[in-house]
Design a protein around this nucleic acid. Structure first.
Lengths: 215, 215
DNA sequence: GACGCGAATGAATAACCATTCAGTAGTTGC
DNA sequence: GCAACTACTGAATGGTTATTCATTCGCGTC
């Protein structure tokens, strides 16, 4: 073994800023999931990361900025991947595109406990903190518009005269939020796969020619 | 004017415990809505209530118990009224009962900003605090069961062979949660009445013979 | 192998905040 | 009108926690 190693708790080692930042953000996510937003302290975060107390301020200036970076880390990833599905032209047909959206929204990666905990911890405070609100909803308008467009195309293709694309998109977005929340708080009552079946049923009943209620 | 009066900020007056408790709970709700759960301090709550610092501990023993009482105040009211709709046998038919549920869930009283803020502030911390979780979900299983029963009756009456009562109930519950959350965080994008139209569309597409998509 | 630089440490500091409690004022019973 | 009692007050206390910064340490360079 070399003189320094990361997993060896004794020696310390200078590492690039980016590595330390991600290490601290991951530790913050764990702390939020374990103790809630109000239970997060610099001491807990840095201990979780296996580093010393002062390091978070060194890399992030303040606790507030560390928390904002953590929220951004979680949302940026989701927004990027969702956008790429909604804007892709590589799916063989619209049904496949919607199917991909559904699989994505209830994939293990997206519904990972730590991420969901971070997401809803901040949403719970968002109303009183404009900064949180901005980060949470930055992408939302765009995403809602893209989804409405996709649903509109499906409606025209399938000739569903009674379906309203805008309301259906708003409903899907809200339904996914609600399912995530229920899955997070009571995974026994609503396991991930049941949540996905519920969302599928929603889409199937809006677009019966495109989506079937069972996979 | 008598020697003492409530609205006169100078004199103080002894009032029954119950009155003070409610006064403090209401002040706590306002504080949570204004500054989030983590921004609530005893000083802020008691100032908001127009009382002195020590009074909250006098009536509630601790901050934690004041917060729990506030959460309970909000949930108890909702659970009581929802239960009475779901268990009532006074509606002329099943369609009217579902209609009542919908009107209730998006009534101004239920979707009042302060109540929603309290609800989601606690849900955001619920995963890490078993006590919050217990209060939030105490009634949920019962309510889900009652709703599944109601939907099952509707399915039999309307002969909807492809609709699953359990999934539809789970979906409705999640959809309402998600709509509330979106309305709370971005009332511009999703005003209360649009949220209700979305929920109505959900029910209309599940039970087309009973509920119409427009009111 | 020692010099210099930037990363990392953690004891010390200062701010904040829940809780206490001795004292004050209103209320009730006589 | 006077105790006895109860609700209420807010300065003081003590615990917790973000932030600072003097010091330590690792690593590349000469």
């Amino acid at each position: 073994m070399t003189k320094n190693s990361n997993s060896d708790g004794k020696t310390r080692r200078a590492l690039p800023k980016e590595v330390r930042k991600e290490q601290l953000i991951r530790a913050t996510m764990k702390c939020i999931a374990r103790s809630g937003l109000s239970g997060v302290t610099m001491a807990r975060v840095t201990t979780e990361a296996g580093l010393s107390l002062g390091i978070a301020n060194l890399h992030f200036e303040s606790k507030e900025k560390l928390l904002l970076a953590t929220l951004q880390y979680v949302t940026a990833e989701y927004n990027r991947d969702q956008k790429s599905i909604l804007e892709s032209r590589d799916y063989p047909n619209l049904a496949a595109q919607i199917e991909a959206l559904l699989q994505f929204d209830f994939s293990a990666a997206v519904t990972e406990k730590n991420k969901m905990a971070v997401w809803f911890a901040f949403l719970g405070e968002a109303k009183s903190r404009p900064t949180y609100q901005r980060i949470c909803s930055r992408q939302d308008s765009t995403s809602e518009a893209l989804m409405t467009g996709l649903f509109q195309a499906v409606i025209e293709e399938g000739a569903y005269p009674d379906t309203n694309a805008e309301l259906t998109a708003a409903g899907y977005i809200a339904l996914v939020d609600g399912l995530w929340l229920n899955t997070l708080v009571a995974p026994r009552r609503l396991p991930r796969k049941k949540a996905r079946r519920v969302a599928r049923q929603y889409l199937a009943s809006a677009f019966p020619q495109h989506i079937s209620p069972e996979f």
